[in-house]
Every structure is written in structure tokens, then in C-alpha cells.
Amino acid sequence: MNVFRLTGDLSHLAAIIILLLKIWKSRSCAGISGKSQILFALVFTTRYLDLLTSFISLYNTSMKIIYVGCAYATVYLIYAKFRATYDGNHDTFRVEFLVVPVGGLAFLVNHDFSPLEILWTFSIYLESVAILPQLFMISKTGEAETITTHYLFCLGVYRALYLFNWIWRFYFEGFFDMIAIVAGVVQTILYCDFFYLYITKVLKGKKLSLPA
């Protein structure tokens, strides 16, 4: 464990909690892409199957259970409890254009052709593009609630911190995983446009609104 991975995990946890609390307290999922949340639930489900097969640490196991639990709770709030507030007209990204290519790539480019490894690889590739429906929805509505921008900022920062974690681990532990690194770089790049808007607007107290 190093400071980049720990702060990355805490940033990821913060993002997940911020979103869950925002929906729960405001009793509304307006502006939130349910499709992205389904993709995240799929990412955690396919990545954390090793919960059943291997124990790494109490931290690792408990965080995985929290992530999976919150992901499904968020999907439940969006599609069941507060379904009336779900903005389906703007959440129109064609996720099959993400899942199918990512699924194919996971079969073609992986470290080991075993079910667990292919599912892990699928989850790594999927996570790198899972935020696209949410970013697409914001570009369609032309704006985002400030709390949603904080959620996105924490979510984007987490994987950027993981990039530093991988530099650290390569240098000190001689470990690197090219699949995770390339996907992590792609994932972080997808947030750059949002980071720019967040830093130049939201941090100056303005609302995040895109030229629609």
C-alpha cells in the first residue's frame, strides 16, 4: 500500500458515497446517468468475484463489499425507488457500443485465458469507459448539479492517483500491469475536459454549464 493508492481508494469511496447520499437525501436522481451506474455495478461484479476465492486483507475485502453494495444500492435507487425522477430522455448513450467491444477486447488482450482473468480484464476495460454515458448526459442537458460535479471530480481523481500508484509500484516493487495502466490512462484522459471545466468554473463558485 502507498499513499497514492490509499488516497485513490478514499477518493473513489468518497465519490460513491457522495452520489448515494445525493440521491438518497434529495430523493432524486435527476442529472444522473443510470446507465453509467449499471456499468459500474457490472465493473465491480466482474472484478470482485475473487471475493469468493481469495482473501488479501480486511481492508481489501471490506472495501470491495462496500463498493459492490453501494453500486447496487445506487442502481436500485435510480431504477426502482426514485424511478419517477430518472431522466431517461437524456440518458440515451448506447451502452452496447461500449460493452460489446470491451467484451471482445477482453477475450483478445488479456494476461491469461481463464474465466476469472478474462472477467477481471473485462472489468478493467469497462471501467475506463463506464463514465461516458454520464458525461454524454451532461453534454446533452448542458449542465450538472454542483454535487454531481464533486462526485465526478472524486471519481476522476481516483484513477489519476492510481497512475501514480503504478509508477510507485514499478519503481519500488518492480510491478506493473500494462492492461491496468493503459486502461487507467484512457480513463483519466476522458475526464480531462471535465477537470478543466471543474477547476475553471465549479471551484470558482460558478455552476457547471456547457454551451449546449
Partner: peptide, 10 residues
């Protein structure tokens, strides 16, 4: 070897 991912990350 450099490559084996211990899968100890979240």
C-alpha cells in the same frame, strides 16, 4: 517476474 499482477488492488 515484472508482470504478475498480485491483484491486491481495488
Amino acid at each position: 517476474d515484472l508482470h504478475i499482477n498480485p491483484k491486491d488492488e481495488l
